[in-house]
Simulated scan of single mutants.
Amino acid sequence: MTAEETGLRIQEALDRLTGGEQVAGEQLVRELMAFYGDGLTRLVRALPPHTLGPLLDDPAVAGLLVLHDLHPEDVTARISRALDSLPEPVEVLGFDPGTGSLRLRRTKTGCGSAEQDIEAALACHAPEVTAVELDRAPQLLQIGTRPPASAEAR
């Protein structure tokens, strides 16, 4: 389960609570987040630096580290890591941290990574990205063979 899926499930549970129950539920989530965050901070600090690197590609680990502000990479590196995990390459045209908007372009024509795949990869690694603008590569003119000449044209 990804951090995004977990967040949605928690929000759905909180939405089912009413009045004072919702306040109590939100407080419970805050306390648990603080508890797990403190424990995760201690674990990350105790790890030798080289051991954390391979774990950064795991979406669940990356999501937890980002959620608790423990991820060792900056947002640019995390965006690259997320995009590198896609089956089709995309080029970063720009990221505006003020708006969270990321502009991308496909580097190959055809049916590459769907926007949902891109957004899912970014949600785990770079939740600072709140909007994705995908510039489409220009469509190439496809040239085929000429149709056979009809007998009448001969």
Results as ranks from 00 to 15, higher is better:
151 A>F: 15
93 L>S: 00
113 S>T: 03
103 R>E: 09
118 I>V: 08
151 A>N: 14
151 A>R: 15
150 S>D: 15
122 L>G: 02
100 G>W: 05
112 G>W: 00
120 A>F: 05
143 I>G: 09
135 D>Q: 07
123 A>R: 09
115 E>D: 10
111 C>L: 12
126 A>I: 02
149 A>T: 13
129 V>D: 03
115 E>I: 09
127 P>Y: 02
97 P>D: 04
140 L>G: 08
120 A>N: 08
91 E>C: 02
145 T>S: 14
128 E>C: 06
110 G>K: 05
148 P>Q: 14
112 G>N: 03
100 G>I: 05
149 A>N: 11
153 A>R: 14
139 Q>S: 12
125 H>T: 03
146 R>D: 15
148 P>D: 15
135 D>M: 01
103 R>Y: 08
95 F>M: 06
117 D>E: 13
106 R>L: 01
104 L>G: 00
139 Q>N: 11
112 G>H: 01
153 A>P: 10
149 A>Q: 14
134 L>F: 01
103 R>N: 09
119 E>F: 06
108 K>Q: 11
108 K>N: 09
141 L>V: 08
141 L>M: 09
100 G>F: 05
147 P>A: 15
93 L>M: 02
129 V>L: 06
142 Q>A: 13
148 P>W: 14
96 D>N: 11
125 H>Y: 06
131 A>Q: 12
109 T>Y: 10
111 C>V: 10
119 E>I: 08
101 S>N: 10
120 A>I: 04
153 A>S: 14
153 A>C: 11
133 E>L: 11
